[in-house]
Amino acid sequence: MAEDTILSTSGLTKEFAGFTAVNSVDLSVRRGSIHALIGPNGAGKTTCFNLLTKFLAPTRGSIVYNGRDISREKPAEIARLGLVRSFQISAVFPQLSVLTNVRIALQRRKRGDSFDFWRSERVLSELDAEARSLIEAVGLTPFLGLTAGELSYGRKRALEIATTLALEPEMLLLDEPMAGMGREDVERIAALIRKISKNRTILMVEHNLSVVASLSDRITVLARGQVLAEGDYATVSKDPRVIEAYIGSGGGHGHH
Protein backbone atom coordinates (compact mmCIF):
# COMPACT_ATOMS: atom_id res chain seq x y z
CA MET A 1 0.00 0.00 0.00
CA ALA A 2 2.73 2.46 0.97
CA GLU A 3 4.61 1.96 -2.33
CA ASP A 4 1.40 2.59 -4.23
CA THR A 5 0.86 5.98 -2.67
CA ILE A 6 2.78 8.90 -4.12
CA LEU A 7 1.14 11.69 -2.13
CA SER A 8 -0.75 11.49 1.10
CA THR A 9 -1.99 13.85 3.74
CA SER A 10 -3.04 13.12 7.27
CA GLY A 11 -5.07 15.45 9.43
CA LEU A 12 -4.40 18.31 7.03
CA THR A 13 -5.96 21.45 8.48
CA LYS A 14 -5.91 25.12 7.57
CA GLU A 15 -7.49 27.77 9.74
CA PHE A 16 -7.91 31.41 8.76
CA ALA A 17 -8.64 33.65 11.76
CA GLY A 18 -11.11 31.30 13.37
CA PHE A 19 -12.51 29.89 10.13
CA THR A 20 -11.48 26.35 9.26
CA ALA A 21 -11.17 26.14 5.48
CA VAL A 22 -9.70 22.66 5.42
CA ASN A 23 -10.53 20.37 8.31
CA SER A 24 -8.49 17.27 9.03
CA VAL A 25 -8.31 15.96 5.48
CA ASP A 26 -6.78 12.55 4.88
CA LEU A 27 -6.00 12.12 1.23
CA SER A 28 -4.12 9.39 -0.53
CA VAL A 29 -3.19 9.60 -4.19
CA ARG A 30 -2.18 6.38 -5.92
CA ARG A 31 0.88 6.45 -8.13
CA GLY A 32 0.00 6.62 -11.80
CA SER A 33 -3.62 7.61 -11.29
CA ILE A 34 -5.63 10.65 -12.26
CA HIS A 35 -7.21 11.83 -9.06
CA ALA A 36 -9.81 14.60 -8.96
CA LEU A 37 -10.71 16.84 -6.08
CA ILE A 38 -14.23 18.18 -6.43
CA GLY A 39 -16.83 19.84 -4.27
CA PRO A 40 -19.28 22.73 -4.17
CA ASN A 41 -18.09 26.33 -3.90
CA GLY A 42 -16.41 27.05 -0.60
CA ALA A 43 -15.68 23.38 0.02
CA GLY A 44 -12.01 24.11 0.54
CA LYS A 45 -10.70 22.71 -2.74
CA THR A 46 -8.55 25.68 -3.60
CA THR A 47 -7.19 25.98 -0.05
CA CYS A 48 -6.44 22.27 -0.09
CA PHE A 49 -4.70 22.66 -3.43
CA ASN A 50 -2.62 25.57 -2.17
CA LEU A 51 -1.63 23.53 0.85
CA LEU A 52 -0.47 20.64 -1.33
CA THR A 53 1.52 22.98 -3.58
CA LYS A 54 2.98 24.72 -0.52
CA PHE A 55 1.64 28.13 -1.52
CA LEU A 56 -0.08 27.99 1.89
CA ALA A 57 1.36 26.55 5.09
CA PRO A 58 -0.87 24.10 6.97
CA THR A 59 -2.07 24.91 10.49
CA ARG A 60 -1.88 21.21 11.40
CA GLY A 61 -1.32 17.89 9.76
CA SER A 62 1.27 16.55 7.40
CA ILE A 63 1.86 16.01 3.72
CA VAL A 64 4.04 13.14 2.57
CA TYR A 65 5.32 12.94 -1.00
CA ASN A 66 7.29 9.89 -2.09
CA GLY A 67 7.92 8.95 1.52
CA ARG A 68 9.23 12.40 2.37
CA ASP A 69 7.51 14.83 4.70
CA ILE A 70 7.05 18.04 2.71
CA SER A 71 4.72 19.78 5.19
CA ARG A 72 7.19 22.60 5.77
CA GLU A 73 8.95 22.77 2.40
CA LYS A 74 8.95 25.91 0.25
CA PRO A 75 7.12 25.87 -3.10
CA ALA A 76 10.31 26.08 -5.18
CA GLU A 77 11.71 23.04 -3.36
CA ILE A 78 8.81 20.70 -4.04
CA ALA A 79 9.05 21.60 -7.72
CA ARG A 80 12.63 20.36 -7.55
CA LEU A 81 11.33 17.08 -6.09
CA GLY A 82 9.14 16.54 -9.16
CA LEU A 83 5.83 17.82 -7.83
CA VAL A 84 4.76 20.62 -10.18
CA ARG A 85 1.58 22.67 -10.12
CA SER A 86 -0.42 24.58 -12.70
CA PHE A 87 -2.45 27.71 -12.09
CA GLN A 88 -6.09 28.56 -12.59
CA ILE A 89 -5.41 31.67 -14.57
CA SER A 90 -3.04 30.66 -17.31
CA ALA A 91 0.52 30.76 -16.09
CA VAL A 92 2.84 31.83 -18.83
CA PHE A 93 5.56 34.47 -18.98
CA PRO A 94 3.69 36.93 -21.23
CA GLN A 95 6.62 39.05 -22.42
CA LEU A 96 8.83 36.09 -23.28
CA SER A 97 8.59 34.17 -26.53
CA VAL A 98 6.86 30.80 -26.69
CA LEU A 99 10.25 29.17 -27.13
CA THR A 100 11.75 30.98 -24.14
CA ASN A 101 8.78 30.05 -21.95
CA VAL A 102 9.50 26.37 -22.40
CA ARG A 103 13.25 26.90 -22.28
CA ILE A 104 13.01 28.57 -18.86
CA ALA A 105 11.70 25.28 -17.47
CA LEU A 106 14.36 23.24 -19.31
CA GLN A 107 16.97 25.66 -18.04
CA ARG A 108 15.96 24.86 -14.46
CA ARG A 109 15.93 21.11 -14.95
CA LYS A 110 19.17 20.89 -16.94
CA ARG A 111 21.29 23.64 -15.42
CA GLY A 112 19.83 23.95 -11.92
CA ASP A 113 20.27 27.53 -10.83
CA SER A 114 21.28 30.21 -13.33
CA PHE A 115 23.13 32.88 -11.42
CA ASP A 116 25.68 33.30 -14.22
CA PHE A 117 24.95 36.88 -15.22
CA TRP A 118 28.30 37.21 -16.98
CA ARG A 119 27.61 34.51 -19.57
CA SER A 120 25.83 35.05 -22.86
CA GLU A 121 22.36 33.59 -23.26
CA ARG A 122 23.73 31.80 -26.31
CA VAL A 123 24.70 28.96 -23.96
CA LEU A 124 20.97 28.28 -23.67
CA SER A 125 20.59 27.54 -27.38
CA GLU A 126 21.63 23.94 -26.70
CA LEU A 127 18.18 23.58 -25.08
CA ASP A 128 16.32 24.87 -28.15
CA ALA A 129 15.89 21.50 -29.87
CA GLU A 130 14.23 19.92 -26.87
CA ALA A 131 12.09 23.02 -26.30
CA ARG A 132 10.93 22.86 -29.91
CA SER A 133 9.92 19.22 -29.66
CA LEU A 134 7.88 19.94 -26.51
CA ILE A 135 6.19 22.82 -28.30
CA GLU A 136 5.52 20.54 -31.25
CA ALA A 137 3.89 18.01 -28.90
CA VAL A 138 1.25 20.52 -27.83
CA GLY A 139 0.75 21.83 -31.36
CA LEU A 140 2.23 25.29 -30.89
CA THR A 141 5.02 25.10 -33.44
CA PRO A 142 3.47 27.76 -35.74
CA PHE A 143 3.58 30.24 -32.83
CA LEU A 144 7.17 29.65 -31.78
CA GLY A 145 8.32 33.24 -32.31
CA LEU A 146 5.32 35.00 -30.76
CA THR A 147 5.41 36.24 -27.21
CA ALA A 148 3.25 34.17 -24.88
CA GLY A 149 1.03 37.19 -24.20
CA GLU A 150 -0.04 37.18 -27.86
CA LEU A 151 -1.48 33.65 -27.68
CA SER A 152 -5.18 32.86 -27.29
CA TYR A 153 -6.39 31.55 -23.95
CA GLY A 154 -6.49 27.91 -24.98
CA ARG A 155 -3.01 28.11 -26.49
CA LYS A 156 -1.64 29.70 -23.34
CA ARG A 157 -2.90 26.64 -21.49
CA ALA A 158 -1.20 24.37 -24.02
CA LEU A 159 2.02 26.36 -23.60
CA GLU A 160 1.72 26.05 -19.86
CA ILE A 161 1.47 22.29 -20.20
CA ALA A 162 4.52 22.15 -22.48
CA THR A 163 6.43 24.25 -19.94
CA THR A 164 5.38 21.99 -17.10
CA LEU A 165 6.31 18.86 -19.04
CA ALA A 166 9.77 20.30 -19.67
CA LEU A 167 10.44 19.68 -15.99
CA GLU A 168 9.59 15.99 -16.45
CA PRO A 169 7.53 16.08 -13.28
CA GLU A 170 6.63 12.85 -11.57
CA MET A 171 3.38 14.33 -10.37
CA LEU A 172 1.22 17.17 -11.63
CA LEU A 173 -1.18 19.24 -9.61
CA LEU A 174 -3.65 20.93 -11.94
CA ASP A 175 -5.76 23.80 -10.66
CA GLU A 176 -9.01 23.79 -12.66
CA PRO A 177 -7.37 23.07 -16.01
CA MET A 178 -10.65 23.75 -17.86
CA ALA A 179 -11.60 26.98 -16.14
CA GLY A 180 -12.94 29.57 -18.56
CA MET A 181 -12.59 27.37 -21.66
CA GLY A 182 -14.82 26.86 -24.65
CA ARG A 183 -16.06 23.37 -25.49
CA GLU A 184 -13.48 22.77 -28.21
CA ASP A 185 -10.58 23.77 -26.01
CA VAL A 186 -11.93 21.58 -23.21
CA GLU A 187 -11.79 18.53 -25.44
CA ARG A 188 -8.32 19.38 -26.69
CA ILE A 189 -6.91 19.90 -23.20
CA ALA A 190 -8.68 16.78 -21.87
CA ALA A 191 -6.99 14.75 -24.59
CA LEU A 192 -3.68 16.38 -23.74
CA ILE A 193 -4.09 15.57 -20.04
CA ARG A 194 -4.89 11.98 -20.87
CA LYS A 195 -1.82 11.81 -23.09
CA ILE A 196 0.55 13.22 -20.47
CA SER A 197 -0.87 11.08 -17.67
CA LYS A 198 1.12 8.09 -18.90
CA ASN A 199 3.84 7.29 -16.34
CA ARG A 200 2.66 10.21 -14.25
CA THR A 201 0.32 10.95 -11.42
CA ILE A 202 -2.15 13.78 -11.76
CA LEU A 203 -4.19 15.42 -9.06
CA MET A 204 -6.62 18.03 -10.27
CA VAL A 205 -9.19 20.37 -8.88
CA GLU A 206 -11.95 20.71 -11.46
CA HIS A 207 -15.44 22.14 -11.67
CA ASN A 208 -16.42 20.59 -14.96
CA LEU A 209 -17.98 17.31 -13.82
CA SER A 210 -18.15 15.74 -17.26
CA VAL A 211 -14.39 16.21 -17.56
CA VAL A 212 -13.92 14.72 -14.12
CA ALA A 213 -16.14 11.78 -15.04
CA SER A 214 -14.27 10.99 -18.21
CA LEU A 215 -10.72 11.57 -16.99
CA SER A 216 -10.32 10.55 -13.41
CA ASP A 217 -9.70 7.16 -11.89
CA ARG A 218 -10.57 8.33 -8.44
CA ILE A 219 -12.51 11.24 -7.02
CA THR A 220 -12.47 12.85 -3.61
CA VAL A 221 -15.44 15.04 -2.77
CA LEU A 222 -14.87 17.84 -0.32
CA ALA A 223 -17.59 19.76 1.49
CA ARG A 224 -17.13 22.34 4.22
CA GLY A 225 -13.45 21.57 4.38
CA GLN A 226 -13.92 17.86 4.99
CA VAL A 227 -13.79 14.72 2.89
CA LEU A 228 -17.37 13.76 2.14
CA ALA A 229 -16.88 10.79 -0.13
CA GLU A 230 -14.24 9.04 -2.15
CA GLY A 231 -14.29 6.53 -4.98
CA ASP A 232 -14.73 6.32 -8.74
CA TYR A 233 -17.27 8.53 -10.52
CA ALA A 234 -20.06 5.96 -10.49
CA THR A 235 -19.79 5.46 -6.74
CA VAL A 236 -19.37 9.10 -5.85
CA SER A 237 -22.13 10.42 -8.11
CA LYS A 238 -24.69 8.09 -6.51
CA ASP A 239 -23.70 8.93 -2.97
CA PRO A 240 -26.69 10.69 -1.39
CA ARG A 241 -24.47 12.91 0.74
CA VAL A 242 -22.70 14.16 -2.37
CA ILE A 243 -25.98 14.86 -4.16
CA GLU A 244 -27.25 16.68 -1.10
CA ALA A 245 -24.09 18.77 -0.75
CA TYR A 246 -24.30 19.90 -4.37
CA ILE A 247 -28.02 20.64 -4.30
CA GLY A 248 -27.72 22.28 -0.89
CA SER A 249 -25.15 24.70 -2.24
CA GLY A 250 -27.23 25.66 -5.23
CA GLY A 251 -26.52 22.91 -7.71
CA GLY A 252 -23.46 21.59 -9.45
CA HIS A 253 -22.02 24.43 -11.49
CA GLY A 254 -20.21 23.27 -14.55
CA HIS A 255 -22.88 20.60 -15.00
CA HIS A 256 -23.72 21.54 -18.56
Binding site: F87, V92, F93, Q95, E121
Partner: peptide, 19 residues
Protein backbone atom coordinates in the same frame (compact mmCIF):
# COMPACT_ATOMS: atom_id res chain seq x y z
CA UNK B 1 22.42 36.08 -19.77
CA UNK B 2 20.89 32.86 -18.42
CA UNK B 3 20.47 34.81 -15.17
CA UNK B 4 18.70 37.62 -17.02
CA UNK B 5 16.28 35.13 -18.57
CA UNK B 6 15.25 33.90 -15.15
CA UNK B 7 14.88 37.48 -13.89
CA UNK B 8 12.57 38.30 -16.78
CA UNK B 9 10.52 35.19 -16.04
CA UNK B 10 10.20 36.18 -12.38
CA UNK B 11 9.26 39.72 -13.43
CA UNK B 12 6.55 38.35 -15.74
CA UNK B 13 5.07 35.80 -13.35
CA UNK B 14 6.74 35.14 -10.04
CA UNK B 15 4.48 32.35 -8.71
CA UNK B 16 4.94 30.47 -11.96
CA UNK B 17 8.72 30.84 -11.84
CA UNK B 18 8.63 29.50 -8.28
CA UNK B 19 6.45 26.59 -9.35
Amino acid sequence: SPFGQVCKAIRDNEPRAIS
